[in-house]
Write a protein that binds this DNA or RNA. Structure first.
Length: 740
DNA sequence: AGCACGCCGACT
DNA sequence: GTCGGCGTGCTC
């Protein structure tokens, strides 16, 4: 025999592993979780060893020898391997891509896990004894650098030294030349925040409800899932922090997952200011080395807390103690392309696997989580609607019919804005539509300017003087005349945040106005600056899109205006009402957070809509219960399981031919198994053409997960065989959050 | 996904 | 005569 055979996950879209002979120089046994460099076709690829066996089903003449094993210690530990193995099976996604998703890009490319060194500096003996005042008098920056060394007595890297001034690098070179400082190279590590920040924070005394939640989570032994329900500002973060502190006392790490937009500098600052440990941060803005650093800090146990977005659910933890999912209802926790996993669902699986508690926090829990609470699988902890503060905001529905409307605002809403501004209140205006106007209408022939590649209208952006398609990103200069009839009577129709901002500036020229949407926060650090303007009170009016709803704390807002409540009311997706309610509660929750009671004004064409009424009169909980009954009757999640097969192609027929063949294969599979699984479609996506591709889908409905999985495994194998699949791009989405 | 092979149209 | 279009097949 040729020695052990390695079963390797290689990054391809194939649902299987590849067998290789052990490399010649394999010193020691190959182990599961190690990275291995293998020849793959004409190329070399980095794969993950998923198993080691003495035999292989592959013909001996086809077996190739692996080039080398890249890790001494497995890059993925046994717990992560189990998680990824399960995820690949459950989401029916190729193992090679699943394992790759769990590794920082640097490791995917084959870099040594210890790579990433940094240059830093420390004082020499001469430097320790040098006359500080004499140096500081002639060279300010050098003086500040010496002061930094004196404060910490440490080895300092660029990140810390740059605080001395923009010309720090020139100053440090001068200090090296004088022999006061020496330059060294060390393995890069994340630093804990300066202790000076920590002294500023005075932890608030927990409320009785917070106490109950903290105690419940702290006393949990082994796996336990909790829903921590409470609006932003009710003190969820304080509960997290107290539980994390207890974990630190026991020398255990906590993994905190937050939605993309929630990972703001403010949140990070708050954690660093409070916790006596290094905090590893993982978000999309990091470069490869920074990511590797954070990953390693988590794995080696250098970081007491790891905060990250979705993909951080895969970081290795040396001493796991707790997993927190903040804003667990947020759809950005589900990856929407490629490997379509839910970080929330994987967190629960991982918590069980690691035998640690999992806390799911939200003001507006997903129906899936509420169902788990109802079934007794999760423990429900709830915080009163607001910590310390007075009462519920007053909510007022404004009928948009039979009313004069200027710039999208009715008279009552304008009055309310003026009233709150005069009373020195802060006003927040929510309009989930960016740009100036959502369409451009020819008043002569009635044509609307449409995108050439999508079934959608172009949005007018006045600031950039362009028409932009929000679906494919296409841009066009503003037309001088109608493209259909040639006349020049083009009218911007509808309200976007850009237009609303300009209207508000005309109305209140002397008030600070800040707009927060994707267009105004494009540059790095921009969002932080804008949030600061709101917090400091410099801005009296803050307007924006969905971005405003995600976890930012604006304690002085007394009035919240929802300009158009109707966008989400009649969505195509069965989850439209859940989404709308979540956005509502999240937005309305901003009003009157501190001492003053707030007001919420909502403009709608349907003031009698039962959903709005229930939500406003009774709150999110009763709304959710009512909506859940509908879900049960209709067989929608969380009362049933869904899987979506999507297909797209520049040729309409290619996409739908594939879906029809897929349906036939499904019928075939079901005839053999006899399981009660329903197939709906093929149906065109709600926006059939996007970025020049025609899109369609097939919806699979089953009563139980087991049934769904029994169906999906053989079906997926059949899909891979379908000839029609070669002419269309397709993907499987288990537990989809978006139905198109 | 890549990458090669292979078999038909318009070009130096 | 060949450059190159994308259909088909393969990757241990």
């Amino acid at each position: 025999m040729t020695g052990p055979v390695l079963q390797v996950a290689v990054g391809t879209p194939l649902m299987r592993l590849f067998d290789y002979l052990s490399p010649d120089d394999a010193n020691g046994a190959a182990r599961r979780g190690q990275r291995v460099l293998v020849p793959f076709g004409k190329r070399r690829r980095v794969g993950i060893i998923c198993g080691v066996s003495e035999t292989s089903d592959v013909a001996p003449d086809k077996l190739r020898r692996a080039i080398s094993i890249l890790d001494a210690e497995p890059a993925l530990d046994a717990d992560l391997m189990a998680l990824l193995d399960w995820a690949s099976t459950y989401y029916h996604h190729p193992p090679g891509e699943v394992y790759a998703a769990a590794l920082p890009i640097a490791l995917r490319k084959g870099t040594a896990p210890r790579a990433g060194s940094e240059t830093c500096w420390r004082l020499t003996t001469d430097g320790e004894n040098a006359d500080r005042d004499a140096i500081a008098k002639r060279a300010k920056v050098q003086g500040r650098i010496l002061a930094l060394f004196d404060e910490t007595g440490d080895t300092l890297g660029k990140d810390r030294l740059s605080a001395a001034g923009a010309t720090w690098d020139r100053a440090i070179r001068a200090l090296v030349d004088k022999g006061l400082v020496e330059r060294i190279t060390r393995e890069a590590r994340i630093a804990r925040a300066a202790a000076v920040d920590r002294r500023r924070a005075t932890p608030p005394e927990p409320t009785p409800e917070q106490r109950v939640a903290i105690d419940a989570i702290r006393t949990a032994r082994g796996y336990n899932a909790f829903l921590l329900e409470g609006v932003t500002g009710s003190g969820k973060t304080e509960v997290y922090l107290r539980c994390i502190e207890r974990q630190l006392e026991n020398d255990r790490q906590t993994l905190v997952i937050v939605p993309e937009i929630g990972l703001t500098p403010q949140l990070v600052d708050r954690f660093e200011a409070r916790l006596d440990c290094a905090v590893a941060i993982l978000h999309s803005g990091l470069n490869d080395t920074e990511r590797l650093l954070a990953w390693r800090a988590a794995r080696d146990g250098d970081a007491g807390v790891v905060i990250g977005t979705r993909s951080a659910i895969f970081v290795p933890l040396a001493r796991p103690g707790l997993i927190v999912i903040d804003e667990e209802h947020d759809t950005s926790l589900k990856q929407q392309e490629g490997f379509r996993y839910s970080a929330r669902d994987l967190a629960v699986w991982r918590g069980r696997q690691l035998a640690v508690p999992v806390v799911l926090g939200s003001a507006t829990p997903s129906f899936e989580t509420l169902e788990n609470v109802a079934a007794g699988r999760y423990t429900h902890l709830s915080l009163p609607r607001r910590a310390g503060a007075a009462r519920q905001p007053d909510i007022r529905l404004i009928d948009l019919r039979h009313q004069p409307i200027r710039d999208g605002l009715t008279e009552p809403m304008r009055d309310a804005i003026a009233r709150h501004l005069d009373a020195n209140g802060q006003v927040m205006i929510y309009l989930n539509r960016r740009g100036f106007a959502p369409s451009l209408l020819c008043t002569s022939c009635g044509a609307l300017t449409e995108c050439r590649r999508c079934d959608a209208r172009m949005v007018l952006h006045r600031g950039r003087n362009k028409l932009i398609c929000h679906h494919c990103g296409a841009e066009r200069p503003l037309p001088d005349a109608c493209e259909a009839c040639g006349t020049a009577e083009l009218l911007p129709v509808g309200q976007g945040t850009e237009r609303l901002e300009s209207a508000l500036r005309d109305l209140y020229p002397d008030r600070g106005i800040v707009r927060i949407d994707r267009d105004t926060t494009r540059k790095r650090g921009e969002i932080g600056r804008k949030l600061e303007q709101v917090r400091s009170g410099e801005a009296r009016i803050v307007l924006g899109t969905q971005m405003l709803t995600k976890g930012h704390d604006f304690p002085d807002v007394t009035l919240v205006c929802i300009v158009d409540a109707d966008q989400g009311l009649f969505g195509t997706d069965f989850r439209a009402s859940e989404r709308l309610a979540q956005a509502f509660v999240q937005v309305a929750g901003r009003a009157g957070r501190a001492k003053r009671a707030g007001e919420v004004y909502i403009q709608t064409l349907f003031p009698d809509h039962p959903l709005l009424r229930t939500l406003i009169a009774d709150g999110y909980g009763p709304f959710a219960r009512a909506a859940m009954t509908e879900r049960r009757d209709a067989g929608w999640p969380p009362c049933a399981c869904l899987t979506l097969l999507r297909a797209e192609s520049p040729q309409r027929d290619a996409a739908f031919d594939f879906l029809r063949a897929a349906r036939a294969a499904a019928v075939d599979v079901l005839a053999a198994s006899g399981d009660d699984v329903t197939i709906l479609g093929p149906a065109p996506a709600p926006m059939e053409r996007r970025a020049g591709r025609f899109r369609g889908q097939l919806l699979i409905q089953a009563q139980q997960r087991g049934q769904m999985q029994r169906f999906l495994t053989p079906w997926r194998a059949r899909l891979d065989e379908l000839q029609q699949g070669r002419r269309a791009r397709w993907s499987i989405d288990v537990d989809p959050v978006e139905l198109f």
